[in-house]
Design a protein around this nucleic acid. Sequence first.
DNA 1: TCAATGCTGAAATCAAAAATTCAGAGGGGG
DNA 2: CCCCCTCTGAATTTTTGATTTCAGCATTGA
Lengths: 278, 278
Amino acid sequence: MEGKSVAGRIHDANHRLTAAEKRAARGLLGSYPTLGLAPVAEFAQQSGASSATVLRFVSQLGYKSYPDFQRALRDELEERSKSPLQRSTANAGKAGGDEHFLDHFVTQAIGNLRGSAALIPASEFEDVCARLAEAKGACYLAGGRFTDFLAGYLEAHLRLIRPGVRRLDGRPATRGDQLIDVKAGDLAIIFDVRRYDESLVEVASELAARRAHIVLITDEWMSPVSRFAKLVLPCRTSLERTWDANGALFTLAEAIIARTTELSWATASKRMGSIERG
Amino acid sequence: MEGKSVAGRIHDANHRLTAAEKRAARGLLGSYPTLGLAPVAEFAQQSGASSATVLRFVSQLGYKSYPDFQRALRDELEERSKSPLQRSTANAGKAGGDEHFLDHFVTQAIGNLRGSAALIPASEFEDVCARLAEAKGACYLAGGRFTDFLAGYLEAHLRLIRPGVRRLDGRPATRGDQLIDVKAGDLAIIFDVRRYDESLVEVASELAARRAHIVLITDEWMSPVSRFAKLVLPCRTSLERTWDANGALFTLAEAIIARTTELSWATASKRMGSIERG
DNA sequence: TCAATGCTGAAATCAAAAATTCAGAGGGGG
DNA sequence: CCCCCTCTGAATTTTTGATTTCAGCATTGA
């Protein structure tokens, strides 16, 4: 228990934590470790809890005082900058493989998330959500080889909060049928990332011809679909590996879901209620 | 002068500093920025100067108080951990709505990611990837209402790197057919999050009866499937909103894909190559 | 529905750290 | 060699922030 990292202790104590204490934990993990180095009052305010709760949280972690906890954070920080690579050899218990893989991967994913948030103008994001919330006309969804699952995920949620949601599947044979009802002003959300899908360009061009309002969710290298899109939301996906990471697109989809729900709460909540019961 | 880094200010002010103040500067630079985040007394002791000198030093740098100086250090630290492409776009917005929604959402998602990394033992993660890479026996995938798309995403990638990957769909009618070939030692990966899917428990129990090795990817509240699982990878999903966020599960899936690819590179790369060409 | 338990944050208390003061040390110039 | 000026850190004061307390609130279980 003594020599454990702060993040590790949060893990251990997780089940003991009360609701407000978890808020504190989340806040800290969200901007780690800086928030913990701030005075209690600021920590409290930033994480949406009271000072008292933060103190209780820290004490749950096993520190006997707040300054004690801060010292632990500083030590960790110091440790990390001393030995960039070998830091968590401390808890390198038993598994033979690369202990840090998950940590390292998650760090990169976080970088992509932050990068994406910076890449996407707030106004465009808001615009998309507002259009979805208005629920005028239909909303079509499509994705490429892998991103089709993102489209599916988004569709499954949007169906709950508004009517007129359809997914376009990839089969060229049925494309005509699927697009036949598209009207001017309908919304279309297309996911497309590198190794871009040619058929999506065709779909997009068809949608554009029918005056649909196309939103493109893509990677930093920009799918060619952007040519037809009214709004483009680019995400960072880079990874020093075989594959790119689409986690940022996924989180963007979830953000859209959350924001749209919020914007259309009055109607969406009723709708969801009736679906529950039905 | 205002927006300058602390280290930069030290450089600029260097000639103005007295002997003892330089000792303080040297100490801070020596373990930057940690020492500056400590209380004055400790800073003083560690750097071999008195508290008063440290305070004078800080004031020379242009900060109006010690806490003010510490805040600058924390801000710097936070800034540094932010992504390569950053703030310029962040504050460029002009939309009327909730400017910070996406930023805020992303911050929470990051918290969930970090929390998940802390929650998942490296050994279990490695174990799952190693089993996948071995490619002995078949690998079944299943998910619930929303998480089915995660299962699909994982499946689409795993198919590229190893044989014997199947997805179990939700229809009870075909369940018998799907499970008929399950053999002892086969791998099964099940996704299940809150509002847990009852049918998944049944599937899991059937799989367990056939001695499959069940891996469960779930949220912090633990799907009841855990009863049958050999390995559980829990992720943080909490959000102060209507829905939980599954971004951490998604990223975990991507991490599994990346790690498994790495572990089985010799065989996987050939396989992927032939799929490309075929 | 109502008690009981436990969680929560506002306010009061208390401790610690930051700021200030000042006597004396050190060092350079006369 | 001595005086004067500047720098320095111990001691003191003041301010800030950590801790505790407690009344109200929510949640759970009967």
